[in-house]
Structures are given as C-alpha cells and as structure tokens.
Write a protein that binds this DNA or RNA. Structure first.
Lengths: 189, 189
DNA sequence: GCGGGTTTCCTAAATCTATTAGGAAGATGC
DNA sequence: GCATCTTCCTAATAGATTTAGGAAACCCGC
C-alpha cells in the first residue's frame, strides 16, 4: 500500500483550508480523510481526536494571525499601528473566515499556553506605547481593543450590522478614529 | 401510549436549559429526547431538524435578553443606562452561558427578521439619546457599543483575559467609563 | 542488501447522531 | 361514536467518532 505521507502539520493545514471552504464547524475527521483519499481510521495515527484536530487548526490560525500582525506592526506607531493591527484581524477574517472562526476556538489551558495567544496580547500592548497610558489603564485598554476588534469583526461577519446605511466600511474607520481619540484622552478613574 | 405533551415551546425551553448545562454546541436532538424520556424520532413531529432546534433556542435567548434589557433601561439615561444595558449582557452570559452562546447563533434572514434582534439594536440606540450624537455617528456608535459588549463578554468568558491583574471586574467598570467619556466627546470626522 | 523494529495505513466493528417512512394509539370535533 | 388529526412509536438508512488488531512500508544498523 502506498503511503499518503500524512503528518499532523499537513492535516492541520488541510483542515484550515477545509474550514475556509465549508466553515470551521463542518471540519470533520471524515471530511479530512476524504480529502487525502485515505480511510478515516488512518488519521488516528496522527491525531488523538476530532477535538485535537480542531485545536491544531486553531493554533495554526493563531500563529498565522500573529505573524501577519507582527509584519503589519513593524515600523508603525500610534494611530497608524492601531489601524494596521485592526485591519489585520478584519482582513484575515474576511479572507479566511474558517480560520478566523478556528482562532476563536476555546483552547484548553495547556494548548492556550503553547499558542500564539500571548503574542497577540503583546502586540496589542505594543500599540499602546504610542499613547500615554500606564498600568493598570494599559491593561484595561488592551482588553478594550481586543474586545472591539473581535466584537466588530464577529458581528460584521455574522451579519449583525444588517445592510443599512452607513456602510460598515465607513463605520470601521470612524470606530478606529474614536478609539484613537479615546486612547489619546483616556479618562482618569 | 401515554403522551409526553411536547411542544416546540417546551422543547426550546428545555434545549436552553440543556445548553446552559452542557454548552450550546452539545445540544442535540438525541439529548433532548432523552431528557423528555421519549424516542428521538418523536421530536421530529415538532421540529424540522437539529438546525431548527438551535434556531428556536437562539430566538428564545434573544427574547429573554431583550426583555431583561428593556427592564434594565426603564427610567435610566446617560451613563446609568449604558452601564445597565452592558451589565444585562454580561450578567446574562454568566448566568446562562449556553443561552448566551445560542444568542450568537447565526440565524437565517427569515428567522433573524422574526427575532428580537431588532429590539436589541433599538435599545442600544436608545442609550445614545442621552448623548449628543446625530446620524451617521449614532449608527457608528451603536455598532461600536455592540462590538464592545459582545467582544468583551465573549473574550472574558473564553478566558481570553487570563487571570492576571487587574481583575476583569475592574476593567469592566473602566471600560464603561471610557465608553461614556468617548460618547460624550465623540470625535468629529 | 537484509532482518528487526517502528510507523502508517488498512479492515472491522461499536457507538452515537440525524433523519425519513410508515403505523398505531390518543385526542378532538361533530 | 366515528372520522380525523396529532403525537408518539418501531424500523431503517446514513454519516461521524473512535478503538482494536493486522499487514505492508519505511528506516537503521549491520
């Protein structure tokens, strides 16, 4: 029997593609086996469970996203950096909806620690260097930014912003303007 | 054979309870049948599919949430209203994580139109009456608030804010302070 | 280049979920 | 009390997950 040359890495990568095509929810060990033209049971030499597969796809997406964010942030500061990072998340979600959904997958503590999650927090924090915030306000602001990025992207993609005017493109730029203004003028406790 | 007295409504209600207990993802027609001590096929006299069940649970959650929001908003304005509404979402998510996840379920356009989704948008908009915003900034602000509420709650519940200091309670109040400040001082385009 | 050990893939089988078809018993209305 | 509709059932199909155990392919040292 010729071997298919499967590895965990290739499975995660193919799983990510599959997620973009049919949605992260629909990523299944069976579908993946089909894609490699291999019997389902064969995949269990490479992954422990369906949950394990999803975890690996999630971690791949988090890495990709962190890489993009790192690139986007290089050489930028202040509002420029804010906009760049925000757009990385939004663009990634639009280009790779399945992967973006995967990045939202709830990881167990061990996987979370090994994931690129920490890099994301660090990069959001890096943005704030361009603003005049000290702890604990810096952490508050990091959490606010994370909330807005994630919340906006997920509502927009879920159709939560309906179809009405003004368009979401305009809102996005105005929201980033507003965040910039807020960070420059963070209220005292 | 004695009848179990199933109705779509009771199924949705029981499904919501089940979601809170085991997670919305794990809500299954089979599990629901078990809970009513009835054969799986019997449920198909009341619902079209598993997806249909999830839709009904989502709409139930959206109604409950809108009812709570409506109560919380009565007689309040300005920052008081902002805080009240924000806390409704957060508290609901904590008390009923499965239902809250259900409320995030992506509805088809017909169900979405029949859902309480519109009431939610209206209530967020109502908050802004206490601030000096006109269109299209009002819509931008509605979307920002929705993003923050949803994003914060979902990151917090997903463990995205780790466990480090400062605690998320403090961040939450400071984020609401910041939003209030931002709305009172919305930047010109 | 050959024998042994490991890895990868297979067949087979159990279990769970979703869904449909068709039947029988309970409820309802006249 | 009969006809009809509804609700629940049995039976069956199909797909997903997961485990057990086997055989061929690959790799390593000799």
């Amino acid at each position: 029997m010729a071997r298919a040359g499967l590895t965990m890495d290739r499975l995660a990568r193919a799983g990510a593609e599959l997620a973009d095509e049919v949605g992260f929810e629909q990523v299944t060990v069976s579908a993946l086996a089909r894609r490699f033209d291999v019997k389902v049971a064969s995949l269990y030499s490479h992954l422990k469970s369906s949950h394990d597969l999803k975890t690996k796809i999630a971690m791949l997406a988090l890495e990709e996203l962190a890489d993009r964010a790192g690139e986007a942030l290089a050489g930028r500061a202040g509002k420029d950096a804010l906009t760049a990072l925000a757009n990385v998340y939004r663009d990634y979600a639009r280009q790779h909806p399945g992967r973006y959904a995967a990045a939202q997958f709830r990881l167990d503590p061990k996987s979370a620690a090994a994931s690129a999650g920490g890099r994301h927090a660090q990069m959001t924090r890096a943005i704030l260097r361009g603003y005049d915030l000290t702890e604990p306000d810096q952490t508050h602001a990091v959490r606010l930014l994370g909330s807005v990025f994630h919340g906006y992207v997920s509502l927009e993609m879920g159709g939560g912003f309906s179809h009405s005017a003004p368009d979401t493109e305009e809102t996005w730029t105005r929201v980033l303007d507003a965040l910039d203004a807020l960070l420059r003028n963070w209220p005292a406790p």
